[in-house]
Write a protein that binds this DNA or RNA. Structure first.
Lengths: 302, 302
DNA sequence: ATAATAGTGTCTTTCAGACAGTATAGT
DNA sequence: ACTATACTGTCTGAAAGACACTATTAT
């Protein structure tokens, strides 16, 4: 349809668009930052014991200023001819070489001084990958990528009552470690309630070896991952095709940072899985049935 | 601290940053789009009946190409010296003249062709305002702003079983109306489950009078508002200082689009409110106690 | 008196948490 | 036999849903 209506300047839509020049104004740069999580197995410590699982995050060692030598989230600039999601998928593919993957937009970070180079606004994405599918081709890229074990805990909590409400300050400790490096950060989350108005503020108190504001982005991502684990089926993106319920429970436990009771856990996830006729072998104890994801699981959320 | 380390090109951080020029690359424009919700009262239809409440959204009539004459969300470009949040607050202030307000970032929209003028990436924010505080100074701005009644309903649902899972297609109908105009859109939400990989896609099927991809942004916002209503205290941002529990329930009902049972509703919100010694007057029925928000309500979520 | 809303009590079902018990492989 | 995990049954209490009942005002 050709719209022939005129605007106040007496110009048609076609002419208006042809004359439009976005470059008249200064614009920020836009990047995507990827939180790529996986869960890996350690070695068996004992012929009986199950191998321990750990939550891992992919980071890149910076080879240039700023934050030279520190670790940052993989990511890059959004091209003019690709959508935000496509840019995220492209970065993901570059780092992990996996196509079919769970990916979700998290949040867009837009503080003015968050990147010392220039005004850069960054949209963060979270994706979950099965480490079995990954190990085939990991970090074959030339850049200095490495997986870090993620630990995220509440460190201190303080509540102050005020006249109109209260202030809740919580200090979280984020630890990222592997054989090569040990990174950490403290993130302060301040919730101020005054009358009916509540405000939440997040500040990086101390960032050791983590570039930019990425400690905060990681904190946000871990919290989202934890909360979504409880009411969606995202955990299965971290699992191989076949798995035991014990392994699935381990994944929940390592992400949530708590122990769960077996009987209750099984009840909770019962509808999400389908049993197979296969069993594990060569365990120093009773073999367990293998399950797969139930693709007809009715998920009310999202 | 002055970092004197050199990168691979033998340049210090200081020199690197001084030479950095972001303008070398083409960049998209970044805007914020505001979803400003309020709940207003209709006239009493009967000396006994409570006045009906409706959920309202603020829209702006476009006075220029593209989408000339259609309605869009208020918003604008992010300046180079302000954060994303500050840009959103500025837009909010321009439209409503209110400072202390609930505001939350929703999602960032980054499809390539979403704006015919140029490559524009837009971060959407949702804010909730008390209509009582608002009516003092509403839309005094020169631009053509108006409040629209929001109706959002599931229209059609279709489930197709496939070999590896299923496809769930849901069609939602969004209606925005006031005395002046009647806008509508159909939004299709497609959830594809294949094996363990689930994908959600949202498409605008038909947008009548709503500019750009804003129908989709509104749909996303209404869904977020509904879900947050159930597990947080955001509803109180739509309430005046003092309110009756009946009024509060009306607000919940009009947003959720369902009727709630009084006794159960009261149980649910019991901890969030504090009673006062005041009562409503001149009702054609038993007067009701006035409540205020309980600022010491322990909210576990977020 | 009546129509409308205000406010309370309680039964049932569902679900989460806790815990105790039985089953079964490999060494 | 022992150890570590696999798997099941059931008690409890909390929360959600449904419904019935009483209270109180302006007209």
């Amino acid at each position: 349809m050709t719209d022939t209506r005129l605007n106040k300047q007496g110009v048609t839509e076609q002419a208006f668009l042809a004359a439009y020049d976005a470059r008249k104004y200064e614009r920020p740069s836009v990047t995507v930052d990827m939180l790529i999580f996986t869960v890996t197995q350690e070695k068996k410590k004992n012929y009986r014991k199950l191998p321990e699982k750990t939550l891992r995050l992919l980071l890149i060692k910076r080879g240039d200023h700023p934050f030279l030598g520190q670790w940052s989230l993989p990511g890059g600039f959004v091209h003019m001819d690709e959508s935000l999601d496509d840019a995220a998928l492209r970065e993901l593919k570059e780092e992990t070489n996996i196509d079919t993957i769970y990916m979700e937009q998290l949040y867009t970070w837009g503080a003015v001084g968050r990147d010392p180079r220039a005004r850069i606004i960054s949209t963060s994405y979270m994706s979950l990958v099965d480490s079995a599918a990954l190990n085939v081709k990991a970090s074959d890229d030339a850049d200095d990528a490495a997986w870090f074990t993620v630990s995220y805990k509440l460190y201190q909590e303080q509540k102050t009552l005020t006249e109109q409400g209260h202030i809740l300050e919580r200090l979280f400790k984020l630890n990222l470690s592997n054989e090569e490096a040990e990174l950490s950060a403290m993130i302060k989350v301040i919730k101020t309630v005054s009358g009916k108005i509540a405000k939440i503020e997040r500040i990086i108190i101390d960032s050791q070896g983590i570039a930019f504001d990425h400690a905060q982005i990681i904190q946000y991502g871990v919290e989202r991952l934890r909360s979504k684990l409880e009411y969606t089926d995202i955990a299965f993106n971290l699992m191989p095709e076949l798995f035991t319920l014990g392994e699935l429970q381990q994944v929940y436990e390592v992400i949530l940072g708590t122990e769960l009771l077996k009987a209750n856990f099984r009840r909770k996830i019962a509808g999400m899985v389908v049993e197979t006729n296969e069993y594990t072998k060569a365990a120093g104890h009773r073999p367990s049935k293998l399950f797969r994801f139930n693709p007809n699981w009715e998920n009310t959320a999202e």
